[in-house]
Each structure stands twice: as structure tokens, then as C-alpha cells.
């Protein structure tokens, strides 16, 4: 018997059209952007794809701008640039990007890669959920935009079709006060034990949430969102009632379905989410009261 050799094909398109054509022709090729997830899996021999589809040279994939009134963030924009260039337009995502890995990882890692990995611990996903972002998926068949809320279908599973690539994420332009916080057991370079993102949109009087590392996929806390929509003193920007904060924390904790694992217990995750949620809404509301409405 002859085992397959350890070599693998390395496909390196230089344009988006070429990338989509290659993706269609080699659906078994594993797309790789910054490589901060994929290369670890290869090094640990957890994956041996027959080919890698490197998106690092695709022109335009690392651009961002405004499109259809939305903020369009190319899938290849590295976290470092999100931190330095988008803290005003996408504050929650920028806060999350700042917590990711080390400086080297933030130089390489991308939101597109985070979505592609579809890990429940993907740090960029809760703020995208909270912001109500769309994911733009492209193939030679065409382009579709799907809510990020439905994109992840299970741990490391997504609705990405075998011939599709993640092109961009699209964020609403009316970012209001946003918060993101994550708990890890050291102060840097740590996978989230749990994380929480909150977006207040005073213009539309809506609220978004995102919970990370506490369910099979990143999830929203819908009941907690409804509570704030209904009970935040939007009109007069009055001080936040403590019982509302407490109830919000409880509903966020209840929305999670965490497990015990090496990073933490389910009980801790639930507890910590309640604490993070309370802190997030206090901070966000304080920002709103200071007049932090962006249009």
C-alpha cells in the first residue's frame, strides 16, 4: 500500500475572480488567510487537506470602506488594522480585536478567518452578532449576504458552501455605544473562557448582544435584548436602574448553554457572563448619557 505523500498543493490566486474559480475547481482546498488557526491545525496534524487556497495575495480583500450605506470590511483586514483604523466606526469589534492573541497574531489574523473557523470561541463573532452584521459570501454562482447570527451552524461548522469564500462583513453605520469584554485565565494571549458583546443603538432604540465561548456557537441573548429595548430610559437618558442591570445580567447568563472544560466550569461561565453583561450595559449607558451617539 502506498500512503499519500505529505506534500500538499498550494494554490495562490492573485485576484478575487481567480480565487472564486479556484475554489469552485478545488472545493477540497482549505482556504487560508492569516493562518493563525489553519497552521496550528496543520502543525498538530489535525488536518491534512490535499490543498491550501491562500487568500493572502488576493487584491482588495484587505480593504474596507462604505457600500450601500454599510461599513464593508474585507475578509482579509487583519485585526491590527481594525484596532488602529476602525475603533470609531466599529468600536465593539475593535475592542474584541485588541484582545486577540499577541501582536504577531493580530498582524496576521482576520475576521474572515475567524468566521471561516466558526469556533464558538472566535473573539470577533460576538461583537458582529451584537452589531447585527451581515456576512458576504461569494462564489462563481454569485454573491449572497447572510446575517452573522445564522452563519455558524455548530462548533466549527458554518453555512459556507463548498464553493464559497467569505468576502466581507457588513456593519450598520449607526454604531452607538458598544462594549466587548472577555474572560481568560491570563492577561493576554488567551482563548476566551467566555465573552460578551453589547451594542446600543439609540437612534433606532434597539439593542444587540453576543455571547462567546458559552454555547456550541456564538449566540445572542434575545430576551436580554428585549428587556433593554423595553426598559432603558431612552428618552431622558436617566440613570440606569440597578434592578434592570441585575435582570439583564441574569437573562444574559440564562441565554448561554456552557459546558465544563479545561478552560472553566459551566457554572463559572454563567456567573461571569452575568457580571460582564452588567458591566457592559453600565459602561455603554454611561457613554450614551455622555452624549456618545454616532450617526
Amino acid at each position: 500500500m502506498v500512503l499519500p505523500r505529505s506534500e500538499m498543493e498550494f494554490l495562490q490566486p492573485e485576484s478575487w475572480a481567480e480565487a472564486l474559480a479556484v475554489r469552485a475547481a478545488y472545493p477540497e482546498a482549505l482556504p487560508v488567510a492569516g493562518g493563525t488557526d489553519v497552521m496550528v491545525e496543520l502543525n498538530f496534524a489535525r488536518r491534512r487537506p490535499p490543498a491550501l487556497l491562500d487568500l493572502g495575495r488576493v487584491a482588495g480583500l484587505a480593504d474596507w470602506g462604505t457600500e450601500d450605506g454599510l461599513l464593508r470590511l474585507g475578509a482579509g483586514v487583519p485585526y491590527r488594522r481594525i484596532v488602529t483604523e476602525l475603533a470609531g466606526r466599529a468600536p465593539g469589534l475593535a475592542m474584541a480585536a485588541r484582545t486577540i492573541g499577541s501582536a504577531q497574531i493580530r498582524n496576521r489574523g482576520t475576521v474572515g478567518g475567524n468566521l471561516g473557523s466558526a469556533s464558538p470561541a472566535g473573539d470577533a463573532l460576538p461583537p458582529l452578532l451584537a452589531a447585527g452584521a451581515l456576512v458576504e459570501l461569494a462564489s462563481v454562482r454569485g454573491v449572497r449576504r447572510v446575517p452573522v447570527a445564522g452563519f455558524c451552524t455548530g462548533p466549527k461548522r458554518s453555512m459556507l458552501a463548498p464553493d464559497e469564500l467569505i468576502a466581507a462583513v457588513l456593519l450598520p453605520p449607526d454604531a452607538g455605544p458598544e462594549q466587548f469584554a472577555k474572560v481568560g485565565t491570563r492577561n493576554a494571549m488567551v482563548i476566551a473562557v467566555c465573552s460578551f458583546a453589547l451594542a446600543l443603538r439609540p437612534v433606532s432604540r434597539t439593542v444587540g448582544t453576543g455571547i462567546g465561548s458559552a454555547a456550541p456557537t456564538p449566540v445572542r441573548a434575545a430576551a436580554a435584548e428585549e428587556l433593554l429595548v423595553a426598559e432603558l430610559p431612552w428618552a431622558d437618558r436617566a440613570a440606569l436602574p440597578e434592578p434592570l442591570v441585575r435582570r439583564f445580567g441574569e437573562l444574559v447568563a440564562a441565554a448561554a448553554s456552557p459546558i465544563d472544560d479545561v478552560r472553566g466550569t459551566a457554572a463559572y461561565r454563567r456567573h461571569a457572563l452575568g457580571v460582564l453583561a452588567g458591566r457592559a450595559v453600565r459602561r455603554a449607558w454611561a457613554e450614551h448619557r455622555r452624549g456618545g451617539v454616532r450617526g
Binding site: T99, G184, N187, L276, R279
Partner: peptide
């Protein structure tokens, strides 16, 4: 934030 519990993960304010 780098000198607070949780580091830049934005968990903790000085008063906490």
C-alpha cells in the same frame, strides 16, 4: 488596562 486584572480584555475597571 494592561495593569488591571483581565488585561486588555476589558473586564475590569479600577473601582472593581
Amino acid at each position: 488596562p494592561r495593569q488591571l486584572p483581565g488585561g486588555v480584555a476589558n473586564t475590569t475597571a479600577p473601582e472593581q
